[in-house]
Structures are given as C-alpha cells and as structure tokens.
Design a protein around this nucleic acid. Structure first.
Length: 917
RNA sequence: GGGCGGUUAGCUCAGCGGGAGAGCAUCGGCCUUACAAGCCGGGGGUCACAGGUUCAAAUCCUGUACCGCCCACCA
C-alpha cells in the first residue's frame, strides 16, 4: 500500500480504533507477567467530555500504551460515575422545562427518567473517550450504580456500621436549600463576596434604655438567637455578664454569656448566638445548653411552626412566615432601622459558602444525618503517604493531603435526594412510629431518634417486635462514597475475584488536584479499610486545563473549547501530543490553539518522512523483514553511527521521562529527535548514501532508514497512536499492530561520543557556511569555493565529508590548508579550531562582510571579557570545580583565536578597500 | 488568617547553581525530486522588583508587588 500524499486523520482514526477493539488488544494479556493496572477517574454522566477529561485520559493512555509495549500485562478499567446531585439536577432541570417537578413524578418514575438520561449521556461520553483513542479494556467497563458496584456499596456500608464507624445523629450540617439536601464540608465552596456588617442594638430586659450592640452579617438569623456572648475578660462587658437581653422584633429574652471564642476586636465585641444556623454558635450553644431554633424550612423560608412550637407568639411571626431568608433579611433590617435598633451599617467582605453543584448559598441546618467516624480511617491513610507506600507526584501535593487529613471532620454521607444508592437501613413502622413523619415529598422523614436496622438485604421483619412493616431509609449516599470504593469494587469486590487478586493494588492513579480530597483521599481510606492494602502506588496529579488567558474554562464564560472540535480540526494525535507536551508538572495548562496547529505540522512531518522512506523502499528488492537488523551492524557510515547514537540517547531519555511522569519531556525529546535530527540531518545525509555518492551499499541505507523510522514510530506510539499505526501498517500489512510491538531499548554500545563530536563539528561547519552564504546574499543554488585552514586531523575529516559539504552547503570546490597566508577579501567564520573562508569577488559583499565581521568580533569580545574576568578571579580558580575552570580556559583561548582570525580577515578587507578608494 | 504555585523572547511555555531555550508569530532568502502544513538563515530577553548566600544565581534564601489556586468558625 502507498502512503497518500497528505495525511488525513479523519479517515483513519475510527478505522484503527475499531480494529484495536475487535482484536482485543485493550484486554490484558494472559499469563503471569508483571502487571500494570489503573482505574479511570470515572467521568460523571452529567454531560460531555471536557478538556480536563481529555488531558486526564491522554496521560493515562500514554502510560498504558507504553507499559503494554514494554511487556506488562496492562489492565485499564473504564467506567462512569452516577454523580448523584449533579445528575439529579440536570434531569430536574430538563423536567422543569416541561413544567414537571420531580415530586409530581414521584420517586420511582423520576429515577426511571434519570436512568434514561444516564443511558444517553453515558454513551456520549464513552463515544468521546473512544475518539481520544484510549486503550482501556471495555469488557471491564463499570458504572457506580450497576449491580455489582451497588452490592459493594451496601457491603461497605454494613461493614462500617458493624465496626461502629457509622452513626446517625442530629447535627448542624451544610444544607443546600435548592437541592434540598445535606452536603459534606468539602462540597461547600467558599467564595469571598461583598456584604454588610450590621450593628444592631440589643436592649437589656431590665432597662430598655440601655443596649448592647452586636455586629452581624446575617441579621435575619436573629429570629433564632438564643443568647448574646462576650469575651469573659472584656472590660467593657465584664460586669454585665449574666444580664438578660430582650431581642428586638421577637421580644425573646436571652442571656448574656461569656465565652473566650468571642473576638474582642471584631465589631462591637458582642456576638449574637444562633445555634440553629451557625457552626460556631452551635458549639457555643452546646457548651451553654442553649436552645437551638431551626428558623427555616428545607427551602430556607422562615418556618413559623418553629416559633409556635416554642410557645412564642406575636404578630411578627405572621409577618415573617414563609419569607425567603434574603427577603427576611431586608425586612428585618428595615424594621430595625425604623425602630431605632440599627446602630450602623458597614461594608464588609465575607466568605459565603455555596453549593458546589448549584452555587446556592448554603444554610447551616439542623437535621439528622448519617456520618462516618473518619479519624480511624484517616490516620492509616495519612500514614501510608507519609511512609511512602503511596507516592503523590508532584510531591508538593502531599502537604495539602496531610493538612486536610489531619483536620478532617466526620463525613456526612446521607443525601436527601433520589438518585444514588439508597441507604441500606430500614425502620420498623411500629417501633419507630413516633419517629416517622411523612414529608412533603412523600418520603418519610426520620427524626434523630429513629432506630435503623442495617443490613445487606431488606430485613423481612423487625428483630425487636417482629413487625413486618419496614421502610427503607429514604436518603441516598454521597456519590463519593461509591467512588471511594472504585479501585476494588470495579475489580469484583466484595468477591475475591481473579481480577482483584491479579490487579489490586493498582499501579498508578492519574487525576486532577480538584478531586484530591473528594476522591483520592476517600479511595485511600476505603482501600485500606476494606482491602487492607493501598489502592494504588503512585498518584500522579496533573494540572488544570485553562484557556489561553489562563481562565478556567466554563460554560458561563463561553471560553470552553470542545475536545471533539479540536480533534476534528487538527486530528487526535496532534491534540494528544499538545496535551502531553504542555503537561509540565505542577503547572496549569493554557491551551493555545496555534500550539495544536504546530503539532499538527509535526504529525505531517512524520507522515512525509515516512513517505520518503517508503519511496526509497518501493521497488527495491531488498525491502524489509528479512530478519536482519542493520541497526546492529558493526560497520556503519558516520551519519548512521551518529543517528544511532542519538536514537539511543533519545530512547534512554524518553523512558526516563515517562517513568517519572514528565510527559512534556517525553514529548519534546521525541519531537526534537524526529524533526531536528532524523528529518533535518539524517534524511538529508541519507540521500547521498541512497544514490551511491557516499558509502557502497544503498540497500543497507534503505534498510537502515526504515528501521530508524520503525523506532521512531514505536517511540511515538503512546502519544500518537493513530498515525503511528497507520504508517506501521502501511509498511507491512502482514505484521501485527504497533500496539503489541516491544518498546525500543537502547544497547549502550550504540552511544558513540566520538561520532557525535565529529558530526557536531561537521554540522557546525555546514551551518557556518550556510550562514556566510545567506549573509553575503549568495543564491542558494550557487556553488561556492571554500578554503579551510586548521589542524590536519580536522582537515582530513572535512575532506572526507566533501560530498556532504556539497549537498548540504553547496560547497563547490574546497581547499584544505594547514598553513600559509589567509585569503584576502573573504567572508570568514571559525568553527572549533577550523577557519572557513569564502572568497568574495564583489565590492558590495566586501562592505557587508566588513560590517558583519566587525559585529561578530564585538560580540565575541564581550564574551571574552566575561570569561577573562572569571579567570582573573583567584577565588574562582581556587574554589570552582576543576572541570569548570578548564572549560573556561578553553573558551577563552577559543574566543581569542576566533577574534584573531576574524580581525585579520577584517584587516585584509580594509586594505583592499583602501587600495580601491 | 494560613498554605501552595506562578511572574523567562510579541504569544504559549520548558529550563531550576556554571556560556539564556522551544513552539507559534516576525523578518530575509528559497517550489533543493519526503514535506511551502516545508527548507535555509536572521532579529528579538538587565529571566517581575529589592536585598542576601556563593568564586559563580533565571536557577538557592529573605522580603515586596502583581496574578492564580487550596484550606480556614472571626460573627
């Protein structure tokens, strides 16, 4: 088959992906060899693939393809996450467009709808992942809510319960009034915003003419105040402690208490205490046994019933009944102002907590929830990182990990939504009759005193009263509870499957830092708890993909670049190469489109180099695959030995880079070798061997060229799977996929320092001549005469390379002289110890050369001054390393020599010009 | 309030103790039979600022400024 004139990614990507899948190449090989396993960070089934996914999966795929080629049994488990709240929200929004609410639909019907959505969205995401070319084993695909994983979730829950690491309690939790569910602490995003600090006068009960001023950012919560606190040592208030205060509006009488938590410097130094709606106040309330009044309902509207239940009364209750918390705030401020209770209003910056799924301001809310007693899980999870059993890369993130783990609080895992794993706890309708309330959604609400019966399956009867009527806890689990089990639940846990035995612990986890706490930390805790072993050895944390301006990509900003668009336009290989090349450790990626275009050119370059190789191969009887690798030959030409040496270094560097997760180095090393060494120099030089000008065996050169190309394809395959496979297969449709070829290794004998030095000298000379030609406006096609002066060894070497000098620098005739008068009126350059002269015959060029030489001399003189200064420094001579000093000395003499040569050339040109004028 | 990262060529980024690099853009010259998505050559940077350590600092330390994250109960 013939490589087409231009590379078209569109035709080949799907072709090869299907081929790989059909051939089962993504599945781990049988046998007992060393394993490399990974689990994909499961994308949410909420939407489509974004740049973060593209980066994440590209990096994983690079590792997998590399390891697979390098002989490992690779298992990469793909799948998706049900993403509880996020997905429920998406579907709710969809329904809302049709004017349907989820409560109208009812729990069962609603969940059906979500499953429908999951089917569509999940398929779309998987399709996009496949377009990226990722080589995960689709026969292992899992979903966090499929049957097996749901069983794992129940098992984990029950085990935690049995080990007393799970409890149900009424506490102040983060409540999203829009999602109407509890959230874990990390699901709250704190965002600084401008607000007010209202200073409010709280009159004393016994003498309303006297008042204490409190400062608050949330005046509406004063409906739930049950105390005012000051610092015990505050001289201003010390003697007032214990007095009663009558709250404005509600008229509630509350005590003035003293607690060292209060900051005397802040506001007035007096703090209103609302234990039902503030985390600090809650704790102070606990210390003082204060009432906790829940003044809002689930949607954060004033709940009049809460006051009535306390026996409170007054027209204010009706005035505030059902008011949204922000409306209530306005009303309260207005009322306080009107009645002279508002001392002043100051602007104030504050951090408000928002729901990470819908950005609604969080309301601290008193409700019964399920919690994981986290300390016993966190401690071993901290230890394994500290002891290096798990390595976090880059290491800097381990500090964040430790800080978080050490300050971790109990994990609220119950969510008042419908989409997710329903909590495997049941309640006896008879025993818990008093604790069961029918809620507005039709779900039961359970009071804090309800008595759960936890089990792997629904119990048939109540173990206490033998009652047959049992209801399941309506709450579902935090979506991260199931993802925390992912590394082993996907391998078959709780059954002790072959997969689990073979591939757990997994080798590496590749993920973004945004889910370090949400997910990585939980997996480590759960892995240690349920498997008794870490879930992975390495955690590679990659950067965030931003737009060109460094902005986070988001729909609302309209700066989202769709990976599919990029892949369509530039090709998946170019896109993947860009991501890899820009994935420098510990730094965010600003995705610049012209960068992708640049790497598309690289794909094209590879394509054309391959065409060159193919053109030379075709028709030649000595094609490939005769079982003999010319690369291993002892007798090779200079250029051959050079490129082989460079190849060996490249292989070593590439392996080193990828093993250390330095994807950018990996990409760049290969880019440089392929383009700037193989294409720019070797191919050009090989043309002489191919046409018989150099060496005596064009067939050997053909073979060598194709072997080198193979090596390049193999090295590049992990990053650019499609184009490398296409080329690989075009060269021989009988050989197996490039995916299953061994990754290149570099025999140390290939590295040849002497040859590299010689080639560098030759390349330096070629560049110097090209440079002189350009500077002198010498037409590119015109052959020139060049005179070399230098040491005999260098000269005889250069003399041998005359065919190359002719081909690469258009040197026509050349003279090699070791001594004698230098030419008058010549363009001059110096490479190493060799002087290069291009005799000039016209006046214009003499002028230009004079200017050029003068400039060149100036430049070198500057450098010489710097080196001489160093060498004149005794401290440098005595303290610097020997080889550094030696290097400086060499530099100095080279510079001097160079200056001398250029000056004398310059002098000669001046003489000529003086003679002419 | 703590912690982390960034500040290098016009743009996007490598380099992280011993002569400032890449890609793109730019300028000049080339249709040299793999490639004009290319080839050859050039220009362009007191490596944010101020101190310090060192014979030697873009590179290590301290501080400042600006930018960006993460964490945190100061109402």
């Amino acid at each position: 088959m013939q490589l087409s004139k231009a590379y078209s990614h569109k035709d080949i990507e799907a072709k090869w992906y299907n081929h790989w899948m059909k051939s089962g190449l993504f599945e781990p090989t049988k046998g007992t060899g060393a394993c490399f396993s990974m689990v994909i960070p499961p994308p949410n089934v909420t939407g489509s693939l974004h740049m973060g996914h593209a980066l994440n999966n590209t990096l994983q795929d690079i590792l997998c393809r590399y390891k697979r080629m390098d002989g490992y049994r690779v298992l990469w488990v793909p799948g998706t996450d049900h993403a509880g709240i996020a997905t429920q929200n998406v579907v709710e929004r969809q329904l809302a467009q049709k004017g349907i609410s989820r409560t109208q639909l009812g729990r069962e019907k609603f969940i059906e709808k979500v499953w429908q959505w999951k089917q569509e969205a999940g398929d779309a995401i998987l399709h996009q992942l496949k377009a990226l070319g990722i080589s995960c084993d689709w026969s292992h695909e899992r979903f966090t809510m499929d049957e097996g994983l749901s069983r794992a979730v129940r098992e984990a829950f029950v085990q935690l319960w049995e080990d007393k690491l799970l409890y149900r309690a009424e506490r102040l939790i983060n409540w999203c009034p829009r999602c109407k569910t509890a959230l874990a602490d990390i699901e709250v995003v704190h965002e600084e915003s401008d607000g007010n600090l209202w200073h409010i006068r709280y009159p004393f009960a016994d003498d309303p003419s006297q008042a204490l001023v409190v400062a608050t950012t949330r005046p509406e919560t004063m409906l739930g105040d049950t105390a005012v606190a000051v610092h015990p040592d505050d001289e201003r208030y010390k003697n007032l402690i214990g007095k009663k205060i009558r709250l404005p509006i509600t008229g509630r009488v509350v005590p003035l208490i003293a607690d060292p938590f209060v900051d005397r410097e802040f506001g007035s130094g007096a703090l209103k205490i609302t234990p039902g709606h503030d985390f600090n106040d809650f704790e102070i309330g606990e210390r003082f046994g204060l009432d906790k009044i829940s003044i809002f309902d689930a949607e954060a509207r004033v709940d009049a019933a809460a006051f009535l239940a306390r026996g409170e009364s007054g027209e204010w209750i009706e005035r505030y009944r059902g008011k949204d918390r922000f409306d209530a705030r306005k009303l309260i401020v207005a009322e306080l102002k009107e009645n002279g209770f508002l001392e002043k209003t100051a602007v104030h910056k504050l951090a408000v907590g928002r729901c990470y799924r819908c950005q609604t301001v969080i309301e601290p809310y008193l409700t019964p929830q399920w919690f994981v007693d986290i300390k016993p899980l966190a401690e071993p999870a901290t230890k394994v990182v500290r002891d290096g059993k798990i390595q976090i890369i880059p290491e800097g993130w381990s500090n964040s990990y430790f800080a978080w783990m050490e300050n971790i609080k109990d994990w609220c895992i119950s969510r008042q939504i419908w989409w997710g794993h329903q909590i495997p706890a049941w309640y006896c309708k008879r025993c818990d009759a008093a604790n069961l309330i029918t809620g507005p959604d039709g779900d039961y609400l359970l009071t804090k005193d309800a008595m759960p019966i936890v089990g792997r399956q629904a119990p048939q009867h109540c173990p206490k009263c033998d009652g047959k009527e049992l209801i399941q806890d309506p709450d579902v689990l935090d979506t991260w509870f199931s993802s925390g089990l992912w590394p082993f639940s996907t391998l078959g846990w709780p059954d002790n499957t072959d997969d689990l035995k073979t591939f757990y612990p997994t080798s590496t986890l590749v993920t973004g830092f945004d889910i370090l706490f949400f997910w990585v930390a939980r997996m480590i805790m759960m892995g240690l708890k349920f498997m008794g072993e870490v879930p992975f050895r390495d955690v590679y944390i990659h950067a965030l993909v931003r737009d060109e301006q460094g902005q986070k990509m988001s729909k609302s900003k309209g700066n989202v670049i769709d990976p599919l668009d990029v892949m369509n336009q530039y090709g998946t290989d170019a896109f993947r190469f860009t991501l890899a090349a820009m994935a420098a450790m510990g730094r965010d990626i600003r995705l610049a489109e012209d960068r992708i275009a640049g790497y598309q050119n690289f794909v094209n370059k590879l394509w054309n180099a391959s065409r060159f190789v193919q053109m030379n191969l075709s028709g030649a009887s000595d094609a490939r695959d005769d079982g003999h690798d010319v690369l291993f030959d002892d007798k090779l030409e200079l250029a051959d030995r050079w490129i082989r040496s460079r190849l060996a270094s490249t292989i070593v560097e590439a392996r080193r880079a990828i093993e250390a997760y330095r994807f950018n180095d990996y990409a760049n090393v290969l880019y440089r070798f392929t383009w700037h060494e193989f294409c720019d120099w070797y191919i050009e030089m090989s043309k002489l061997a191919l046409n018989g000008t150099v060496g005596d065996d064009p067939a050997k050169s053909r073979k060598l060229l194709s072997e080198l190309l193979d090596q390049i394809l193999l090295l590049l395959h992990p990053i650019m799977p499609f184009v490398t496979e296409e080329i690989w297969q075009v060269f021989s449709d009988t050989r197996k996929s490039i995916m299953v070829q061994p990754y290149p290794t570099a025999p140390s004998t290939w590295i040849d320092a002497d040859t590299e030095t010689k080639m560098e000298f030759l390349m330096g000379v070629v560049r110097a001549i090209r440079n002189l030609r350009t500077e002198m406006n010498c037409p590119p096609g015109k052959e020139v005469k060049v005179i070399f002066y230098g040491q005999s060894a260098d000269l005889s070497f250069l003399s041998e390379q005359r065919p190359y000098l002719r081909a690469l620098a258009r040197v026509g005739s050349a003279e090699f002289l070791s001594s004698g008068e230098r030419p008058r009126g010549a363009a001059t350059s110096v490479v190493g110890a060799t002087e290069i002269y291009l005799p000039l015959d016209d006046l214009v060029n003499l002028d230009e050369e004079q200017v050029r030489l003068a400039k060149e001399v100036g430049k070198i003189e500057q450098e010489l001054v710097r080196v001489q200064k160093k060498l004149g420094n005794d401290d440098f001579l005595s303290k610097a390393k020997e080889e550094v000093v030696e290097k400086e000395r060499e530099k100095a003499s080279q510079f001097e020599e160079k200056i001398r040569t250029l000056r004398s050339s310059l002098e000669k040109i001046r003489e000529i010009q003086a003679g002419r004028s």
